[in-house]
Design a protein around this nucleic acid. Structure first.
Length: 727
DNA sequence: TTAAAGGTAGTTTTT
DNA sequence: CTACCTTTAA
C-alpha cells in the first residue's frame, strides 16, 4: 500500500538544530515540546511526521495530528506533501472539530445521530437557545441568551452534561434546565453545536469499547499543535484516544506548545494542561526549542524581559544567532490621533525605503483602536487591510442560501427553516409562525412536519402553503443536479436573487451568491476523490461551510498594511511591527485585573505581540484618548517599564503631562468651580503612587476627584482629605 | 412589514 | 461616541 522508501531521507533532517533534531527523532514515547515563538515549531511537527512515515515506523493512516485552526491544518498538509511522495488526503490531520466530525459521520448510528446531522455555528446556536427559552417561558432579562449560551458551552467544554452539572441555587438550576432542554431540542432537530462535536465524540469513545480500542490501536502516534490552547474536554479526549491508564503503555502523544503564548484562557484554554500532561503521561522527554529564527536580539531581549515577570511558567529563554539589530522605538503621543499620525508617518518612511506595506503590521489590544488608525491611513492614502471582519460563510445572504440547501438536505432542520421561512418575505408573520410553533410543540415534531401536516403538499403561492411547496419543489428538482446547480436552484427558486436585485445595495450580495456557486464548484473539484460517485456532496459542503467559514477578509491579494488585534497576530511575523495603545487600562486591559491570573495573560499577550517583529519594533502610547465618547487619561503601560532601557530608543519624551494640555483644559469646564488640579495633571498619592487626574464630581463643598493610578486602578478621592502632590 | 426611534453596552476569538 | 438590538409606530 505504501511503497515509500524505508531509508530516511537525509535531506529531511538537514538544517535542523540539535534540539529540533532531538524532537523530530524521539522514539515511541510521550513527549512535550516547548516551542518558543519563531523556533520552527511547524517545521518540527511536520518533519516529525515525515520522518516517522519515511522510516517506516508508522503508515500514513496510523497517525493523527490535531490543530486548532483550519489554516494550521492546511499548512501542515501542504508541507507534508512537499516532503513526502504520498497523497496526504485521507490522513487524519485536522482540527479537533474536523476530526470529531469525521469520526461522528463514520459512526453516526453509534453516536445516536442522523446521517444528515448538521452543525450549528455560533449565531445558529444563539437563535436555537432563544427558541428553547421562549418555549420554557424564561425571562430573558434575568437570563440573557448570550449568558445561557456561554454557560452551556462552558459545561460542554468541561465535559459535563446537564445532569452532571452541580447547581445549588435556583438561578443555576434554571440554567441547567435550559441546557437540558436545549440539548433535547438539538437532538430532535438533528443538529450539533461546535462543543457538541467534541463532547459527543468523547462520549462515543468512552461508551463504545470496541470502537475505542479500534482507534487506540490505529493511532499509535498522536501529534498536537498549540497544546497550550487545549481546554479540559480536548485534553480528556486526547487522553482517551491515547489509551492513558488503559493500555500498558499510552500511545506516543507528541504535544507541542508554548505556555508563554497561551492567550485564550477566556475561551476555556488551560495552560495547566501542559503540567498535567507532563505528570499524567510521565513525560521524560521535555524538549525546549529556544533558538529563534525570526527576530533580532534587541527585540528578543525586550520579549524575554517582559515575560520573565510572570510567575507561572515552565521556563524558557529565547536567543538568536542574528545580531542585535535596531533598538526598540518608543513614542509618546499627546493623544490617540497624534499616535495614529506617528504610525502613518513611520509606515510611509519604511515604505519609501523599500519595505513592502504587507511586511508591516499595526497591532492593538482591542478592535476599537483601529478606527483612529484607519482614519489616518485613509487620509494619507495608504492601503490597509483590517483582519477580523465578517467571513464569507457568515454573510447574511450566504447564510440564507445555505439555509435553503440545508432544508433540501433535511427539512426538519428548524434553525434553517426559521431563518428563511419568511425570507424573502412571503407573508408569514410572527402570528402564523407562533401558530406553527404551537402546533409543532403539540405534535412533538419539527416545524417542517407541523407545516406539512397543516397544508399537505402545499400549493405554489404565498404563506406556509407556498413555502412547503417551494421546499418540495426544490427537493424534487435537486435530485441529479451537481452541487453548483443545486446552489443556483436554491438561490433563484427561493427568490433570494430576485429579492436582492430589487434592493438598493444588493449588487454585492448578488456577487456573493455567485461566489457561493463558485465555492460549491471548487469544493466538488477539490474533493472529487473523497466523495463517492452517487452523492452530490451536499452534506459535505454544508459541513465545510460550518467548519471552515473562510478567510477573514475579502481582498487578500493586494499589497496593504496589516491591521489586527494582538490575538489575531499570533503565528504571524512581519518585518516591522507597531504596537499601539500601550497604556494602563488598555494594555494591560482593565478588565483583566479582576480576572484570575488576568495580568499574566495580558503579559503573555504582550509577549506574543513583541515577538511578531523581525527587524523593527515600534511601541507607542497616548496621554489621552477618546474612549466610549469620553476623554480618558492614562499612564504608560507597565509592560514598557519592564523592558530594559538599554534596548529602547525613546523617540520623544514629554517633560510632563500638563504642558500640552493646559490650553485645552481651561476651555472645557465653564461652570465648574476653580479646580486645584487640572485634568490630565500627573499627581502622586502617598498610598497609591503616581496617577493622572481624570475627572471631578460634586460641588464646591463636596468635591471628589477621580484619579487613574494605573496599576492601582481608578480611584475616587475626596479632595478635602486626599493628600496629593504635583509630579 | 418596514422604518424610525430609543436604549444600552462597550476585551480578546476559533470551530 | 457608535454600533447593535429591541421596541414602537405608521
Amino acid at each position: 500500500m505504501n511503497d515509500i522508501s524505508m531509508q530516511p531521507k537525509q535531506s529531511l533532517l538537514d538544517g535542523l538544530n540539535d534540539k529540533q533534531l532531538e524532537a523530530v527523532t524521539l522514539p515511541y514515547v510521550p513527549a512535550l515540546i516547548l516551542a518558543g515563538a519563531g523556533s520552527g515549531k511547524t517545521r518540527v511537527l511536520t518533519t516529525r511526521i515525515a520522518w516517522l512515515i519515511s522510516t517506516g515506523q508508522v503508515s500514513p493512516n496510523g497517525l493523527l495530528a490535531v490543530t486548532f485552526t483550519n489554516k494550521a491544518a492546511k499548512e501542515m498538509l501542504t508541507r507534508l506533501s512537499a516532503m513526502l511522495p504520498i497523497n496526504t488526503r485521507g490522513m487524519w490531520v485536522g482540527t479537533f472539530h474536523g476530526l470529531c466530525n469525521r469520526l461522528l459521520r463514520a459512526h453516526y448510528r453509534e453516536a445516536l445521530l442522523p446521517s444528515t446531522f448538521q452543525i450549528l455555528d455560533t449565531a445558529d446556536q444563539l437563535s436555537a437557545i432563544k427558541r428553547v427559552m421562549k418555549v420554557m417561558n424564561v425571562d430573558d432579562e434575568k437570563y440573557p441568551p448570550k449568558q445561557a449560551m456561554a454557560y452551556i458551552n462552558n459545561c460542554k467544554e468541561e465535559g459535563l452534561r446537564a445532569h452532571q452539572v452541580e447547581a445549588y441555587d435556583a438561578y443555576s438550576q434554571r440554567l441547567r434546565e435550559i441546557y437540558d432542554a436545549y440539548d433535547k431540542q438539538c437532538q430532535r432537530e438533528g443538529v450539533v453545536d461546535f462543543a457538541e462535536l467534541l463532547l459527543r465524540c468523547y462520549e462515543l469513545l468512552l461508551r463504545d469499547a470496541s470502537l475505542r480500542e479500534h482507534y487506540q490501536s490505529r493511532f499509535k502516534y498522536i501529534l498536537v499543535d498549540e497544546f497550550q490552547d487545549t481546554n479540559r474536554l480536548q485534553y480528556q479526549w486526547l487522553k482517551l484516544l491515547a489509551g492513558l491508564n488503559m493500555q500498558a503503555e499510552p500511545n506516543a502523544v507528541f504535544a507541542v506548545g508554548d505556555d508563554d503564548q497561551s492567550i485564550y484562557a477566556f475561551r476555556g484554554a488551560r495552560v495547566s494542561n501542559m503540567l498535567d500532561f507532563e505528570r499524567d503521561f510521565q513525560v521524560e522527554n521535555l524538549v525546549k526549542l529556544e533558538q529563534n529564527y525570526r527576530s533580532q536580539s534587541h527585540i528578543l531581549d525586550a520579549a524575554n524581559a517582559i515575560i520573565s515577570n510572570n510567575q507561572q511558567r515552565l521556563g524558557k529563554q529565547l536567543w538568536t544567532a542574528a545580531g542585535a539589530g535596531e533598538p526598540v522605538r518608543v513614542f509618546e503621543a499627546y493623544n490617540d490621533i497624534e499616535e495614529a499620525n506617528f504610525i502613518v508617518e513611520e509606515v510611509r518612511h519604511c515604505h519609501q525605503s523599500g519595505l513592502r506595506l504587507d511586511e508591516m503590521a499595526v497591532l492593538y489590544r482591542s478592535n476599537a483602536q483601529s478606527r483612529v488608525i484607519e482614519h489616518a491611513l485613509f487620509s494619507a492614502g495608504i492601503p490597509y487591510r483590517v483582519y477580523g471582519g465578517l467571513r464569507f460563510f457568515d454573510r447574511a445572504e450566504v447564510k440564507h442560501a445555505m439555509a435553503y440547501l440545508r432544508l433540501i438536505n433535511n427539512p426538519h432542520d428548524d434553525v434553517a427553516l426559521l431563518r428563511v421561512i419568511n425570507f424573502p418575505a412571503r407573508g408569514i408573520g410572527a402570528r402564523s409562525l407562533e401558530q406553527l410553533q404551537q402546533a409543532a410543540r403539540e405534535q412533538d415534531c419539527s416545524l417542517w412536519q407541523a407545516a406539512v401536516n397543516k397544508v399537505g403538499n402545499g400549493k405554489p403561492g404565498k404563506g406556509i402553503e407556498g413555502f412547503v411547496a417551494l421546499v418540495h419543489h426544490m427537493q424534487e428538482d435537486a435530485s441529479g443536479l451537481t452541487l453548483a446547480e443545486m446552489t443556483e436552484l436554491a438561490t433563484t427558486l427561493s427568490g433570494l436573487r430576485g429579492h436582492y436585485q430589487t434592493e438598493k445595495e444588493g449588487e454585492e450580495r448578488i456577487a456573493n451568491l455567485d461566489e457561493l456557486m463558485n465555492a460549491a464548484a471548487t469544493f466538488i473539484q477539490n474533493n472529487q476523490d473523497a466523495l463517492e460517485g452517487d452523492t452530490s456532496g451536499l452534506i459535505e459542503f454544508l459541513t465545510f461551510a460550518s467548519l471552515e467559514a473562510g478567510e477573514h477578509q475579502a481582498d487578500v491579494g493586494a499589497e496593504a498594511l496589516q491591521l489586527m488585534t494582538v490575538h489575531s497576530s499570533k503565528g504571524l511575523e512581519f518585518q516591522s511591527v507597531f504596537i499601539g495603545g500601550l497604556e494602563e487600562g488598555l494594555f494591560p486591559h482593565e478588565n483583566s485585573m479582576s480576572e484570575h491570573q488576568g495580568l499574566e495573560e495580558e503579559r503573555r499577550l504582550m509577549y506574543v505581540a513583541v515577538t511578531r517583529a523581525r527587524k523593527r519594533l515600534y511601541l507607542s502610547y497616548a496621554q489621552s484618548r477618546m474612549l466610549h465618547g469620553q476623554m480618558r487619561y492614562g499612564l504608560s503601560s507597565r509592560f514598557l517599564d519592564e523592558i530594559p532601557e538599554q534596548v529602547l530608543l525613546r523617540l520623544n519624551q514629554r517633560a510632563s503631562n500638563q504642558n500640552m494640555r493646559s490650553a485645552e483644559v481651561q476651555a472645557v469646564p465653564s461652570s465648574a468651580p476653580a479646580l486645584p488640579w487640572k485634568i490630565g495633571q500627573a499627581v502622586r498619592h502617598a498610598k497609591f503612587g503616581q496617577g493622572v487626574v481624570v475627572s471631578y464630581e460634586g460641588n464646591r463643598d463636596d468635591l471628589r476627584i477621580q484619579i487613574n493610578f494605573g496599576r492601582e486602578g481608578m480611584k475616587w478621592l475626596a479632595l478635602e482629605y486626599a493628600k496629593l502632590e504635583k509630579v
